[in-house]
Simulated scan of single mutants.
Amino acid sequence: MLRTLFSGARDVVARVLIPDAAGVYKKAWSLRLIELAAISDIILNVVPVVSDYLPWWLTLALLGGAYVARLLIQNKEPADGDKA
């Protein structure tokens, strides 16, 4: 029940803030890579045993990928500031 309630609330907020939130998230590779970088950094710092299997530079590589995805891969859309 709570999952349904929170899911519905999240959808309502997403529609108010971003009309096409699902479409934006499908194209937002930089956001996904930043989330993966954060998760890998947390895992590397919290669970020392995992540091033997994950390289220390994984977070840097994911953040670099997010930078490339944001600047090169995602399409730049024109600003809507001039529209009334």
Rank of each mutant, 00 (worst) to 15 (best):
residue 1 M to Y: 03
residue 2 L to Y: 02
residue 2 L to E: 14
residue 3 R to N: 03
residue 3 R to C: 01
residue 3 R to D: 05
residue 3 R to Q: 04
residue 4 T to Y: 01
residue 4 T to D: 08
residue 7 S to A: 15
residue 7 S to H: 06
residue 8 G to T: 13
residue 9 A to F: 07
residue 10 R to H: 11
residue 11 D to K: 10
residue 11 D to T: 09
residue 12 V to G: 04
residue 13 V to Y: 05
residue 13 V to G: 03
residue 13 V to F: 08
residue 14 A to M: 09
residue 15 R to Y: 06
residue 16 V to M: 07
residue 17 L to E: 06
residue 18 I to Y: 05
residue 18 I to D: 05
residue 19 P to T: 08
residue 19 P to C: 02
residue 20 D to L: 07
residue 20 D to H: 10
residue 22 A to C: 02
residue 22 A to K: 15
residue 22 A to V: 15
residue 24 V to H: 13
residue 25 Y to N: 08
residue 26 K to S: 15
residue 26 K to P: 02
residue 26 K to Y: 14
residue 26 K to Q: 14
residue 26 K to E: 15
residue 27 K to P: 03
residue 27 K to M: 09
residue 30 S to M: 01
residue 30 S to G: 09
residue 31 L to C: 07
residue 31 L to S: 04
residue 31 L to E: 01
residue 32 R to D: 12
residue 32 R to P: 00
residue 33 L to P: 00
residue 33 L to I: 00
residue 33 L to N: 00
residue 33 L to C: 00
residue 33 L to H: 00
residue 34 I to K: 03
residue 34 I to P: 00
residue 35 E to Y: 12
residue 36 L to T: 04
residue 36 L to A: 14
residue 37 A to Y: 00
residue 37 A to C: 06
residue 38 A to D: 13
residue 38 A to E: 14
residue 39 I to L: 15
residue 39 I to W: 11
residue 39 I to C: 07
residue 41 D to K: 10
residue 43 I to K: 07
residue 43 I to M: 12
residue 43 I to E: 07
residue 44 L to S: 09
residue 45 N to K: 10
residue 45 N to Q: 12
residue 45 N to W: 10
residue 46 V to E: 10
residue 46 V to F: 09
residue 46 V to G: 02
residue 47 V to H: 04
residue 47 V to I: 05
residue 47 V to T: 09
residue 48 P to Q: 06
residue 48 P to M: 05
residue 49 V to S: 07
residue 50 V to E: 06
residue 50 V to T: 14
residue 52 D to N: 15
residue 52 D to S: 09
residue 52 D to I: 08
residue 53 Y to P: 01
residue 53 Y to K: 11
residue 54 L to I: 15
residue 54 L to N: 04
residue 55 P to C: 12
residue 55 P to I: 08
residue 55 P to G: 11
residue 55 P to W: 06
residue 55 P to L: 06
residue 56 W to M: 08
residue 56 W to H: 06
residue 56 W to L: 08
residue 57 W to N: 07
residue 57 W to P: 01
residue 57 W to F: 15
residue 58 L to N: 08
residue 58 L to M: 14
residue 59 T to Y: 02
residue 60 L to N: 05
residue 61 A to N: 07
residue 61 A to T: 10
residue 61 A to I: 06
residue 62 L to V: 02
residue 62 L to M: 02
residue 63 L to H: 08
residue 64 G to R: 02
residue 65 G to F: 00
residue 65 G to S: 01
residue 66 A to K: 00
residue 66 A to V: 02
residue 67 Y to P: 02
residue 67 Y to A: 14
residue 68 V to K: 12
residue 68 V to Y: 14
residue 68 V to S: 04
residue 68 V to M: 14
residue 69 A to Y: 00
residue 69 A to E: 00
residue 70 R to H: 07
residue 71 L to A: 10
residue 71 L to C: 10
residue 72 L to S: 06
residue 73 I to M: 05
residue 73 I to P: 03
residue 73 I to Y: 12
residue 74 Q to M: 15
residue 74 Q to P: 02
residue 76 K to N: 06
residue 76 K to P: 10
residue 76 K to I: 12
residue 76 K to G: 08
residue 78 P to E: 07
residue 78 P to R: 13
residue 79 A to L: 13
residue 79 A to G: 10
residue 79 A to D: 14
residue 80 D to G: 07
residue 80 D to L: 12
residue 81 G to A: 08
residue 81 G to L: 08
residue 81 G to F: 14
residue 83 K to C: 13
residue 83 K to L: 10
residue 84 A to M: 13
residue 84 A to D: 11
